[in-house]
Design a protein around this nucleic acid. Structure first.
Length: 404
DNA sequence: AGTCCACAGGAAGGGCAGGCGA
DNA sequence: TCGCCTGCCCTTCCTGTGGACT
């Protein structure tokens, strides 16, 4: 009863708050597609002119889009293909766009699931498992060819797909045009892995990148414009103090010009201000947002580490408490062995631990740089990348999951 | 100039789980 | 259900290496 009262209280307080912060929070999420996209005119024009022939029934070239995270690749592709579909409805040449994010679990884990998803997008429901692969291919083929049209397939994060199921699928997809009687397909592959194309089979490589478009990172000024534009729809008037947007833009620009990061910062800053019952979002909230985003990221990745890697991190944490100077692989391995004994875990070899340390380096929790100490050998010099409060939380998580 | 440390990191292969066709 | 294949994790063995020290 007591707790219900509190909840009610919270909700009422929220509703009756004199100056709400958000007009529309959605606008600041990465799923939101704004009507106008800023600072990507060149890319939009390039892609649009490659796709334009489809409006007269011609098959557009396959496109390969590269660019780091938060450079607008997905946004631009969706925006253009949405428009294309809309316009095609007024003409005689139907266009169908299929968008698949290959990082989504249960969609592109296996060839089967991906094909099933593509079939579903074409309006043919298939059971999630159980049918032979040829049958799925046949269904997909029939679905594609059932009417005269251009089908544009967007494979977002295509590197994840190839990692999981190989590139044979892509090969089949690029050849399917020769068999189709009514329809034609064109593929847009999107990736933030700039070296991805190198690992592809040469046959796939050449057909997939008939056209290439590169998305460069935004600079601070461009990020500023984007945030300014979105904040107009997201926040009520005069809620943002002047320094907030420049600060978000600058912070995100440091991180290779990631617009997603900039929007996250702005959104979380707003959320924090709202929770603190402040009526204005200030620089202080942006700092807190930055901390919160980092904190959440570290906590999440710590939780999801495999057990052995957790013990390695645990050892590094202990070493960082004991000594202030740089930590080396050998020292970590000693502590690691001791810890394994303590908790009854079979220790892995140093060779393997060396790899686990590099993996930890990639998550960003630690910094591990190969350094030569001359006479004293060559090793990785390891530094923890966590501030005190995060460190304590990580320690608690590790203790909880490792000590029984 | 040569030595030598303390590893890095490549190559090959063992063992195991999970998926797949027969 | 069984054998086969594949991918993953890990071990073993190995060669390579930057720079302080002699």
């Amino acid at each position: 009863m007591e707790s219900q009262k509190t909840i009610k209280h919270i909700f009422q307080e929220y509703i009756s708050k004199s100056t709400p912060i958000f007009k529309n929070r959605e606008v600041l999420t990465s799923e939101f597609i704004p009507e106008t996209i800023q600072h990507r005119n060149k890319e939009i024009n390039t892609i649009a002119s490659i796709l334009a022939p489809s409006l007269k029934g011609g098959r557009p070239s396959n496109i390969f889009i590269y660019g780091l995270t938060g450079t607008g690749k997905t946004l631009v592709s969706k925006h253009i293909t949405d428009e294309l579909e809309k316009i095609s409805k007024q003409g005689n040449y139907p266009i169908k766009v299929l968008y698949v994010n290959c990082k989504m679990k249960k969609i592109s884990d296996t060839e089967y699931r991906l094909m099933a998803e593509l079939c579903r997008l074409l309006g043919y429901e298939l059971p999630a498992t159980g049918l032979p692969t040829d049958y799925i291919y046949q269904t997909f083929f029939n679905a594609l060819d059932s009417e005269k049209r251009i089908v544009i397939i967007i494979l977002d994060e295509i590197d994840a797909l190839v990692e999981k199921i190989g590139d044979e699928f892509l090969y089949n997809l690029t050849r399917i045009n020769q068999e189709l009687k009514n329809s034609k397909i064109s593929i847009i592959g999107i990736t933030n892995d700039l070296h991805f194309i190198e690992i592809l089979d040469p046959r796939v490589k050449s057909s997939l990148r008939e056209e290439e478009v590169l998305f460069f990172p935004y600079n601070a000024t461009q990020l500023h414009d984007i945030l300014k534009h979105r904040s107009y729809y997201a926040f009520y008037d005069n809620v943002l103090s002047d320094e907030v947007i420049p600060k978000c833009a600058a912070l995100a620009a440091q991180e290779h010009g990631d617009a997603r990061r900039a929007l996250d910062l702005l959104r979380v800053a707003g959320e924090i201000a709202e929770r603190m019952n402040d009526d204005k979002v200030t620089e202080k909230h942006v700092d807190l947002a930055q901390e919160k985003i980092d904190y959440d990221r570290v906590i999440e990745s710590t939780k999801s580490l495999p057990k052995q890697t957790k013990v390695v991190l645990w050892s590094i944490l202990e070493l960082s408490n004991e000594k202030n100077d740089d930590i080396q692989t050998g020292e970590v391995y000693d502590i690691y062995q001791r810890k394994c004994k303590e908790i009854g875990l079979f220790p892995l070899t140093q060779r393997r631990i060396s790899d686990l340390i590099s993996e930890l380096d990639m998550t960003g929790i630690i910094n591990a740089k190969v350094t030569s100490l001359g006479r004293y050998g060559r090793t990785r010099v390891i530094m923890l990348n966590l501030n005190e409060s995060v460190k304590e939380k990580v320690k608690a998580i590790l203790n909880e999951s490792l000590v029984i």
